[in-house]
Design a protein around this nucleic acid. Structure first.
Lengths: 188, 188
DNA sequence: CAAAGTACTTAACAAATGTTAAATTAGGAT
DNA sequence: ATCCTAATTTAACATTTGTTAAGTACTTTG
């Protein structure tokens, strides 16, 4: 049993048949450090789940690279705003290290929905999960000062602090590299 | 045809039968200014759509009242993090003025999903929409300074500036009332 | 190994936002 | 209308964060 199917089962139970057909449309791919999985301007038509490695979604604002989020193993990676609207995304997906992942073509996936209602519900649940995470992120950004946001990240995604360069972490937290360096210095 | 069904149709087309059964579970309710529609601590089991009026979702952090979002006519109002997890919400829903709305009990709604797949998809779409809005809100909070966030709100939800008191708007923007007053003063 | 680039830190100063408190204005209640 | 309260603005000062620039340390590469 592929580990991604095991993961899916933990989110929403699937029939035998659904497991098989879903596994059949998951492609395994590898990608090397710093490569773009999806570039800015492409319309999101593929979902990804990391088997090994780490990725980020980013965009460019006023010429500055801004990291919107970090994604580790088994996290759903997609640019929802593009996927749901069918429009080109202003965001790209990049891996921070050599990574292996599963990719799922969304148009193939949605054709399965008719026959396999459990698959449709599985992905509804995955997007619900992503939605709830985005709500929590709003809370963090809205009322925690930069230093608290840093410690929150430290608590909730400690791997990010080890695996991502400072500039990505800083823009993710909504502050400058210099500010982040200052916050780090305070700790010791 | 109830206006709420017309609105639903614009999101996802429904069969005649689905329209009728869905309309039958929409209850119309009225509530007076400053009342809580849902209190902090309750588990979210009801979805609301405003017919007339304005509402906000809020929570309390460090004794401070924080407005998470403002909702106008036909907006889906729900505390998703509680609904999807089935756990009590740390957030409340309050109306800012005398309001009329439709309420939908979620457990009744989900029983309709089995027979009416279009209804299930409609609500999936409504939550997708809310998800995309939350992603945009993250972008706003992450990289716009307070003054830009204010002007964004002015552009995207101008009614809020007229209908909500300053303190709610300030906490929504993630700043103090005093800061917001300063920003306003600059304009003229 | 040397050189060049990248990542990270530190410092000094500027700008933005927070804090406290007082002054002003607007609305509601009687 | 008048009083009372809540909402908003203004001011003065403290703190946080941004900006620029320099310096150190670490990687990569020839």
């Amino acid at each position: 049993m592929s580990p991604i199917i095991t993961y899916f089962q933990s989110i929403y139970p699937l029939s035998e048949a659904s497991q098989v057909v879903l596994a059949s449309i998951c492609r395994e791919i590898s990608i090397t450090k710093n490569q773009d999985l999806q570039s800015i301007g492409q319309t999101c038509k593929t979902l990804y789940f990391l088997k090994k490695g780490m990725a980020r979604i980013y965009y460019v604002k006023d010429g500055m690279d801004v990291t919107e989020g970090f994604y580790g193993e088994f996290n759903l990676i997609a640019r929802a705003e593009s996927l749901f609207a069918g429009k080109p995304s202003q965001k790209g997906i990049q891996v921070l290290e050599d990574s292996e992942l599963w990719s799922i073509d969304t148009s193939t996936l949605t054709t399965l929905y008719e026959e396999h209602r459990d698959i449709e519900r599985l992905f509804s649940k995955l997007f619900e999960k992503a939605y709830v995470e985005s709500i929590q992120r709003i809370e963090n950004l809205q009322f925690h000062p930069a230093e608290e946001r840093y410690h929150l990240l430290e608590r909730e995604q400690p791997e990010v602090l080890k695996r991502a360069p400072l500039k990505f972490i800083a823009s993710y937290l909504g502050i400058t590299q210099v500010s982040l360096s200052r916050i780090r210095a305070k700790k010791s």
